[in-house]
Nucleic acid binder design. Structure first.
Lengths: 224, 224
DNA sequence: CCTACCGATCGGTAGG
DNA sequence: CCTACCGATCGGTAGG
């Protein structure tokens, strides 16, 4: 495993500046940065045109690269898709967990918790530059079976955040439908907003959150 | 315009039976039938793999034709997609209108009407062989702008069926959210079922209908 | 509706 | 990360 790595002596990656036109920024290869640019470009295009209709050449161009260059960072187009989805689910879960942390020794009521879940979920889907999760939602079938299974754990974790909240609301009489189906229906209602929500017209994100809460919860239960 | 059409005397389309293997059914060209077969095959494949990932060769094979033959019935792959969507929306609207007809001199309550809309909508999406509307829902972006606008009228008509029902429920205090957003959220919840519903396991269609009604409507309003 | 085919595009790679 | 390129596939067509 730990073989001594020989320092490259022939054509070292450092001294090949003269050839090719100079780059806009300091250097074209600052690693993580370029990889992130590819991910963002891919997420944006996958969302807008779909995975199959997006060309690796499109992605390369959007990240200001040549057609073959994405394959320096990702093994294949599928690997790019998988990376987008994984990053999206990872971010979403982290944001939810952070938002659900109540300050100090206080706690959130189940109703407050659901509002947080809904609010963050909508922002993850509809907030500016958030293309990763929508790609995850609408391009699942483009993923090879093996990779779909690998992602299943992440989505399960994410959905698990909702279960205790919905269960509490159900027991308090504020949510009539069975918890399992309620979760699917509620997430569906929110996920569908990707198809119609327009930040520049119609309802705003807070209005949408209010409407969702009003639609799903009975107010004739305990509080409010 | 109205030139006299000469009867074909060379290689008339009738007398070329001997060549090629005999067809399963009476004849390979019974028009509407073959066209329908193509539509059904296309709808099925578009739903399963997506429009861009489906090959016209796939469709031809599924309809038991040769690779070039779909273009005898449809001008292009896009035209096939459009035809699938139009047929789907047309059927859906007709089914809803028929279902909403109350027998004799009786009438349905708004609550009953919503149940019908939900039930039929779910069947249109999830019933066996109903691939047309799901394609419409999930492949809209694959359509050229001009064609998308042509379809807009059909979807508007369909959604219009829901408005008076939701308005009545809203006024009766059984639906808290604003009607416009309520419609979008409810249809989203139902449309999303395409992604997870499995007729062979989990909830059945009637159970799903019940859950949706229980989730969306307040029962502390007037009746029930 | 089939046969035979074209032109373009696309994912991916070698080699630097 | 670029250059130059390959092999395969794909939508579509002519001509019957």
């Amino acid at each position: 495993m730990n073989t001594v790595r020989a320092t490259p002596e022939i054509a070292p990656p450092i001294a090949k500046r003269p050839r090719g036109r100079p780059r806009k920024t300091v250097d074209a290869r600052d690693d993580g940065n370029r990889r992130q640019a590819l991910l963002a470009a891919a997420a944006h295009l996958f969302r807008r045109k779909g995975f199959a209709a997006t060309t690796t050449r499109d992605i390369a161009a959007a990240a200001d690269m040549q057609s073959g260059s994405p394959f320096y960072h990702f093994k294949s187009k599928d690997a790019l898709l998988y990376a987008v989805m994984e990053e999206g689910m990872h971010r979403a879960k982290e944001r939810q967990q952070a938002a659900l942390q109540a300050p100090e020794g206080s706690t959130f009521t189940p109703r407050e918790q659901l509002r947080i879940l809904v609010q963050v979920h909508l922002d993850v889907l509809l907030g500016p530059g958030n293309d990763f999760v929508p790609v995850m939602l609408y391009e699942a079938r483009s993923l090879a079976l093996r990779q779909r299974k690998q992602l299943a754990q992440l989505t399960t974790d994410y959905e698990a955040l909702w279960i205790p909240v919905l269960t509490a609301l159900h027991e308090a009489g504020q949510l009539r439908a069975p918890v399992k189906l309620a979760r699917l229906l509620i997430l569906g209602a929110l996920n569908w907003s990707v198809q119609w929500f327009d930040a520049k017209k119609g309802a705003s994100l807070p209005e949408l959150t209010d409407a969702a809460m009003a639609l799903f919860l009975k107010s004739c239960g305990t509080d409010q």
